[in-house]
Design a binder for these strands. Structure first.
Length: 478
RNA sequence: CGAGGUGUAGCGCAGCUGGCUAGCGCGCCUGCUUUGGGAGCAGGAUGCCGGAGGUUCAAAUCCUCUCACCUCGACCA
């Protein structure tokens, strides 16, 4: 009764207003705060801790595949940005410019990086001479600025944190292989760390990155059936190399251009975590990136022995897991609700009753299930539960994704599905930009990607009826 | 950038047909009692009423301008 009222009061129900639920969660779980600059968010400790765990694990995967981290400047001279035509056309409308240094006007204005292809290319042109210098497998963890018209925490902010990988290779085949390897790395990361299933695929020309030959994406489905482009990997061919003069002498003593890639994953991934796993009580965090994996709540902490025992357990578990012991004088019920809202995967309660029996009560965030655990092999049991939670979250998200992918073979079915069934639609496409534009115009759905794994579900375009051999995954997107 | 909306205590809001000392809930601080699902009692602190102009004896309240934020579109990771 009182509890239900309070919870409803704190967080808007998902089904009532999903957008408001999202805003409530990011603020109440203390992931972010709004800042003095429009569209910029402050990543608060709890939100930043999630990002730290994402960085740590993804960075390890990058290092394993031979990548090195660097740090480029945040400024790009206007002339440098303009070297690649498609690239500048794509980004110019949304860059922020620095025009003054102190009180003096700069002779050339500087753009605050919206992405760093131009800086990496300029640098590569200087340091690559021989095939022995290749490949260059660089990555950086930085923030970038894009002057977006409307913003939402994590999903679209004026400044956002991300990693951008930029690589240069001797051959096209090698670069293409790298592009797909990194896409696969993202898909694996989403599955193994964020417990989120994704659809891998290639972007249509309309949706591809400015300056790329081809763009690949991993698309995730949010609770409301909308798509979130969750990471992208681009193959550049030698387009940037020619614009920036990145040449090397190959094994045959021939001067050649490098072939390049870039790939990125941003703090938007935190938005995906929230919108895939969250529920009406707030966040539900996948154990492997949760800042707190286990929260310990003492019950009747003033009773003899309780605090001593709970501290000892916290010390033990702290060796293996990210553990928080909440010794504050809040009521236990308050703590339960608080850590549920913050998405902590596992809660352990220890009170006088448990002391007598050498046990504790464990409560799972994902299912609410309560079990009694012996303190003797607690670490083993905690490990098992956290793994189970991860697997369970993934399974649930996978079922949710698979159950909302529909097939449309004709226009009537397509428009009906878009209007009435939140989710993705698989439909054939003739490849004509006009059809893609018409679909967007009339349904607000966009082509999310041409999935790698698919079987054609027809041979005519869902829009114009002409022969079609491309299967596209369509959907409304964030 | 188009269309709507909101700015009053840390948060959520009331007050707004001008009127006297600006209020409520939650939170916060102190003390005591409590502790297995958001505790109880007692005491306490907190406001340039988003900003700037105007009208008036008198402005949170009326007028003008401005800024910020939110939602929905168009644009994008």
């Amino acid at each position: 009764m009182a509890k239900q009222d309070k919870l409803v009061e704190a967080i808007t129900a998902m089904d009532q207003d999903f957008a408001q639920w999202y805003t409530d969660v990011v603020l109440k779980a203390e992931l972010i705060d709004y800042s003095a600059v429009k569209g910029c968010m402050i990543l608060r400790p709890y939100g930043y801790a999630i990002w730290e765990n994402i960085m740590q694990n993804l960075d390890r995967m990058f290092k394993k595949t031979g990548h090195e981290n660097v740090a480029m400047p945040m400024f790009i001279p206007e002339s440098l940005l303009q070297k690649e035509k498609d690239h500048v056309e794509g980004f110019a409308p949304e860059v922020a410019w620095v025009t003054h240094g102190g009180n003096d006007k700069l002779t050339e204005k500087l753009c605050i990086r919206p992405t760093s292809e131009t800086l990496f290319c300029d640098h590569y042109a200087n340091i690559i001479q021989s095939w022995r210098d290749l490949p260059k497998l660089y990555n950086q963890w930085v923030s970038v600025v894009r002057w977006e018209k409307t913003t939402r925490p994590f999903l679209r902010t004026t400044e956002f944190y991300w990693q951008e990988g930029h690589t240069a290779h001797a051959t096209a085949a090698e670069a293409q292989e790298e592009t797909l390897r990194m896409l696969e790395t993202y898909a694996t990361f989403y599955r193994d760390y964020l417990a989120i299933p994704v659809v891998r695929g290639q972007k249509t020309d309309k949706e591809k990155f400015a300056g790329a030959v081809s763009t690949y994406t991993v698309e995730a489905m949010m609770h409301d059936g909308k798509a979130l482009q969750s990471a992208t990997s681009h193959y550049f061919g030698d387009g940037f190399a020619k614009a920036f003069g990145i040449q090397f002498t190959d094994k045959n003593n021939t001067l050649s251009y490098v072939h390049q890639t870039s790939w990125g994953l941003s703090t938007r991934s935190i938005g995906a975590i929230i919108m895939v796993h969250g529920d009406d009580n707030g966040l539900v965090l996948p154990p492997r990136i949760a800042p707190i994996q286990v929260v310990l709540v003492p019950i009747a902490a003033h009773k003899p022995g309780v605090l001593e025992k709970v501290r000892a357990v916290a010390d033990d578990l702290g060796e293996l897991f990210r553990v928080k012991l909440d010794e504050s004088d809040k009521m236990p019920g308050w703590k339960f609700a608080e850590y549920e809202m913050k998405g902590v995967p596992l809660r352990l309660e220890i009170g006088p009753r448990d002391l007598e029996n050498n046990q504790c009560v464990a409560v799972r965030r994902d299912s609410g299930e309560k079990v009694t655990l012996s303190l003797d092999n607690l670490a083993t049991e905690v490990k098992r539960l956290l793994d189970e939670i991860h697997t369970g979250l993934y399974k649930k998200a996978e079922d949710s994704l698979n159950s909302r992918i529909y097939d449309a073979k004709d226009w009537a079915t397509f428009t009906d599905l878009i209007a009435n069934k939140p989710g993705f639609i698989r439909a054939m496409w003739c490849g004509d930009l006009a059809c893609e534009l018409k679909i967007k115009e009339e349904t607000t759905a966009t082509s999310r990607c041409m999935p790698f794994e698919h079987t054609a579900n027809g041979d005519t375009c869902v829009c114009c009826g002409k022969p079609a051999d491309k299967l596209v995954m369509w959907g409304k997107a964030y």
